[in-house]
Design a protein around this nucleic acid. Sequence first.
DNA 1: CAAAACTAATCAATCGTTTGATTGATTGAA
DNA 2: TTCAATCAATCAAACGATTGATTAGTTTTG
Lengths: 206, 206
Amino acid sequence: MEKTDKRTSILNAAEKLFASQGFEGTSTRQIATEAGANMSMINYYFGSKEGVFMEIMSNRIKGFSLALTSIEAEDLNQLEKLMMVIDQYTRRILDNIAFHKMMHRELSLSQRPEMYDKLKQAMSGNLMIIERIINEGIAQGEFRSVDVRMVIASIMGTITNVVTSPSKITAGSKLDIKIPADREILTERLITHLKDLTKTYLTPQK
Amino acid sequence: MEKTDKRTSILNAAEKLFASQGFEGTSTRQIATEAGANMSMINYYFGSKEGVFMEIMSNRIKGFSLALTSIEAEDLNQLEKLMMVIDQYTRRILDNIAFHKMMHRELSLSQRPEMYDKLKQAMSGNLMIIERIINEGIAQGEFRSVDVRMVIASIMGTITNVVTSPSKITAGSKLDIKIPADREILTERLITHLKDLTKTYLTPQK
DNA sequence: CAAAACTAATCAATCGTTTGATTGATTGAA
DNA sequence: TTCAATCAATCAAACGATTGATTAGTTTTG
């Protein structure tokens, strides 16, 4: 029943270690041990340690902007569209916390400019969808006139803040973001907050 | 007139390099070269590379929660207090972008638990001040009943998002966060947004 | 049997740290 | 005033350990 081939077990081990220790802080020997593979298998399959990193990123990037584009085409008002985007985007990120942490950390470094551009391009698609929805809502008078880029920064920033510093939210409670059931609770709580925040902020009070 | 002693020039060089390359990604030889000092001076003054990191963090932590505490005592309503906190907190962070980026990156790692606790403790003071202000505002009926921890996550997250990914905000414009004049513009824009967001969200519409 | 998958051993390079010697200024008794 | 002693500061060189990567050989598989 051991159906995990060495190649993917290396990818999984590397992602886990990169997320908790950083790229530079993780050695190829650690990855190999964690994956239950020989050290040279890393270079055999991926060419180099950086190749492993690139492969992880590439795999994750694929299909990240797929679900969001369909929302834009649906026959809904802009607020409903925005609520759906927040819902899906938040769930996607909280289902891939390790990757999201790793991404944010390594991209704040000035190394790996190629991966930076690659990821920036992939993410800008998502950003533009949200930007278009809000701008459309403003144009139609459905939303107040606001600083759209800053609103997006608030939405994204809130999610990232919860993912990278969950203890600030859960302090005092018994919740632990590493436990799936607790993470589900936290996800719903975050979505509820973000929807309430954006709806209240963007919808003009009569 | 060369008044920069080796000790502080090592600290400055290290902070600059840590901010752009990460702790693990920066070698002691790099630090020494950048500081114009001999490699062994690092261990002579700070004991180890990690000692340099600790010293930088300790220096920055000092006096970070000083300005905020005075606000709480002032004779203002909770909204006015919150506006002042947002104003000062945002300015402080955008005046120390390199440190803030370095802090967030290294603290998202599972290493250096001692520094993690130290910083967490220092920051929790700031968090508690904001939390108390909002809770007080809710109790007095000045604010709507909201998820306080999530509101704080939105405020902090927005600032961090702008600091770590300024290009998402400035894309299309000629602004560059590395240029002091542009950074000032961005700071004011961020403060305006955060004040507008929190005021609109927390103040109940009649 | 040949290609693919895998292993142990080893490579040169770099890491953080330590060593032992040297410098220049300061001190205190002669 | 002089001179030896002492001090922190600085240096080049080297330390052992670890790094990412490669080799050459073995096993597995289709």
